[in-house]
Design a protein around this nucleic acid. Structure first.
Length: 735
DNA sequence: CTGGTCATTTTTTTT
DNA sequence: AAATGACCAG
């Protein structure tokens, strides 16, 4: 055992070691970017286990499934055989942990065990429905605005009733009416939205003493990752679970709090010490990821935030290269320069594609990049984990599966009832709905009794009957028991296949000759293989048999809770394109950040609030600190937005970067526009190595248009930096 | 009931 | 620019 301890503590700094070895009581780890946070967390878990804590008593809650997976893997590598599967530590996201507990304790939580989880789109559908029912005019309030208000309320643990009691005014009154109708719809459909997963968990913990005690006793050591991004509901869950023993370790960085808009409360981490007066605090300021100028640039930027705990950020990796700030003509030009930058990294520095990333504030910016990267033949992927499951054909197939798992889910039922079209149109549906209301029936039950209805055409009745029979056939197939082991997913895949075939989705696309529909067919195939590869998380009940229906439910749950970051595959040999939010927690050798313009970063919607502006600055900070060695920040002088081309304003964040730690390169100026591309930018791009007969080898730091011609600032290996006019200087490019 | 066209609007970020 | 929704002809 002593040997294990030694091994676990080897190669850690004193600060890291302090965090790892702290055993009982509250612990706050303030982990700056690149400070070895994951190392500390995994080593801490291993250390607890090596110290005799049974692995299953450890609960680690993370932000993404990917983070959870990595944590589990690194643990397993350290303690072979003791840390995976049943009996191992529980490592999950807040949402999936809650989802599982709510199924486990469905009865106590007053839920159907196979409740549906509504994603954004489902939620919007349900809210629209609620607005109609509550007679709230959608011209005054958009469903998404109301949805945001409701989500906000839920994050603060207010149900419709409590929300009504706390607010007043016309708008709030309308929201209240929609909210309470929405609650009823969710209940009738046996559905929870994302916020409900947390809210209902809080309610369960508060109301059911037995469940609360059971969970408190089971999870003796709590570890919360990315604590700066927890909202009030998550705060309550964490602290309720820790209440009986106080063994709570939170890890985070206030400077990287970027989810305020969805209720994350930065004061959770800022006030942790007040909450636990005995808490041990371990600041980790040393950055092991990035070189000096990058760290300095990031540190200089974040200094501009008022509401923060100042901490010194430093690195011992040497100064490295200065981040380049590049001004481009427009977004196409910017994309080309990004491609040049990436290619340069590959060809001049031997950086592999997967060690590079392009980051942006909004997803819409990825489009232009894609084009440029395709022409430059640079392999890339866009990190949008949800994109696959957002495709229409996949959503349709999943809707069938969800109705099979939960027949009360009418949002899904409505979606599929006439998809692909089978002759059950608007008027027919209206009639069935009326019939359902009259007879107090659920929609599916009403459909079942279509034959009893008056006023339906024989054709409609026929279509409905066939539809209902098809659903029932699939449901029957799903009720059987299957072995829990891997083979179970084989059955699951077969069920998915059956649904795709019998629903008519398959033949609808098969008959179409278009490329697009063939792709959809292929996507459906992919869904089947996703099901075949699905492995249910270890359950607490140790049954060897499992109903296929439960496996299906677990599958649907995992699908509902995938995040964009989850599908960032490090094995892939490609450049990754993603939003700044998705990039949190990742690192790359070379990073290009685009769109450093006012109204984009910081985003327009943050303009009138200091708090939000600070959050934008943190977002920029997160982006910069993803880079290990090389960083390029760019902006376009002109950008086309919603069809109109407009001049942009330089982001204030660029001005806030310490001048001495960056290199400026204006590729958009007059001179640059005329000749630079041929003479300067292309022949001697920033970063290229050049030889001068007198000064020797040097590196181009920046390119600038001057009256006399294009000039370049070159740092020579002899130590000096010279500004040379490219037209006259006898420069020769070496690399 | 279906599929098309035309007008209208727009999510920033995501579990 | 693109995507959604309303509306209308077949």
């Amino acid at each position: 055992m002593a040997a294990t301890h030694e091994a676990i503590l080897a190669n850690l700094t004193n600060a890291q070691r302090a965090a790892v070895t702290h055993r009982d009581g509250a612990l706050l780890v303030l982990a700056g970017p690149g400070s070895g946070k994951t190392t500390v967390v995994t080593h801490r878990m291993a250390h607890l286990i090596a110290g005799g804590v049974p692995p299953w008593q450890i609960l680690a809650l993370t932000f993404t499934n990917k983070a959870a997976g990595e944590m589990g893997e690194r643990m397993a590598a350290m303690l072979p055989g003791r840390s995976t599967g049943r009996g191992g530590p529980t490592v999950a996201t807040f949402h999936s942990f809650c989802a599982r507990q709510l199924r486990q304790f469905a009865e106590a939580a007053d839920l159907a065990p196979r409740y549906s989880i509504y994603d954004d789109a489902d939620q919007r559908d349900a809210i629209k429905q609620a607005m109609k029912q509550a007679e709230v005019d959608s011209t005054n309030f958009t469903p998404s605005a109301i949805g945001a208000a409701i989500s906000n309320a839920k994050n603060r643990l207010l149900d419709a009733h409590a929300y009504a009691a706390q607010t007043s005014g016309f708008r709030e009154g309308c929201i209240t009416r929609v909210y309470s109708t929405y609650e009823k719809i969710l209940r009738a459909n046996d559905a929870l939205d994302f916020d409900d997963l947390l809210l209902r968990m809080v309610r369960l913990l508060r109301t059911d003493e037995q469940v609360r005690t059971q969970l408190q006793q089971r999870y003796h050591y709590l570890l919360i990752d990315e604590y700066q991004d927890t909202n009030h509901a998550q705060f309550v869950i964490a602290h309720t679970l820790a209440a009986s023993h106080g063994n709570i370790c939170v890890v985070g960085d206030p400077d990287q709090s970027i989810y305020g808009w969805r209720g994350a409360d930065i004061s959770n981490i800022l006030e942790f010490e007040q909450q636990y007066s005995m808490a041990k605090v371990v600041p980790l300021g040393q950055n092991f990821r990035s070189t000096g100028h990058i760290v300095d640039a990031a540190a200089g930027l974040i200094e501009h935030n008022k509401r923060r705990k100042s901490k010194r950020l430093y690195t011992e990796l040497g100064p490295g290269e200065r981040p380049a700030v590049v001004i481009c003509r427009d977004e196409q030009h910017e994309a080309v320069l990004v491609a040049d930058f990436l290619r340069g990294q590959s060809e001049q520095h031997g950086v592999v594609w997967k060690e590079m990333a392009v980051l942006y504030r909004v997803n819409a910016l990825s489009r232009v990049l894609e084009e440029a990267l395709r022409t430059a033949e640079i392999p890339y992927v866009i990190a949008r984990g949800t994109a696959f499951y957002d495709r229409k054909e996949i959503k349709d197939a999943l809707a069938y599966l969800r109705v099979i798992a939960n027949p009360n889910d009418e949002v899904c039922l409505r979606r599929i009832i006439n998809t692909p079209s089978r002759g059950i149109g608007k008027t027919t549906l209206k009639k069935v709905e009326l019939f359902a209301i009259d007879g107090q029936l659920r929609l599916l039950e009403a459909l079942r009794r279509a034959g009893d209805m008056t006023g339906l055409t024989a054709r409609a009745v026929n279509a409905i009957t066939k539809f209902v029979q098809m659903l029932e056939g699939c449901r029957k197939a799903a009720v059987g028991e299957v072995p829990r082991a891997l083979a179970g997913s084989e059955h699951l895949a077969r069920l998915v296949e059956q649904v795709i075939r019998e629903s008519g989705l398959e033949s609808a696309y098969q008959q179409s000759p278009t490329e697009e529909d063939q792709q959809r067919l292929a996507n459906l195939e992919e869904l089947i293989s996703a099901a075949a590869q699905f492995v249910a998380p270890p359950a607490d009940e140790q049954r060897s048999e499992l109903r296929l229906l439960d496996l299906l439910t677990a599958f649907l749950e995992s699908v509902a809770l995938v995040s964009d970051a989850d599908l960032v595959d490090p094995q892939r040999g490609t450049v990754t394109l993603m939003t700044l939010h998705t990039a949190k927690g990742l690192e790359f050798s070379a990073v290009a950040m685009i769109g450093l313009e006012e109204n984009l970063l910081p985003h327009v919607r943050a303009a009138d609030s200091d708090n939000e502006l600070e959050e934008e600055r943190r977002l920029c900070f997160v982006g910069i600190t993803r880079a290990k060695r090389r960083l390029q920040l760019s902006r376009a002088a002109l950008r086309t937005h919603r069809g109109i081309r407009e001049p942009t304003i330089e982001s204030r964040f660029l001005r806030e970067l310490p001048a001495e730690s960056i290199v400026l390169s204006d590729q958009a100026g007059e001179g640059a526009r005329l000749d630079d591309e041929r003479d300067g930018a292309v022949e001697f791009p920033v970063g290229s190595i050049v030889r001068h007969p007198k000064f020797g080898l040097g590196r181009v730091e920046s390119i600038m248009p001057r009256a006399a011609g294009v000039s370049a600032r070159v740092a020579f290996s002899t130590g000096g930096t010279k500004t040379l006019i490219l037209d006259f200087a006898p420069l020769e490019r070496v690399e």
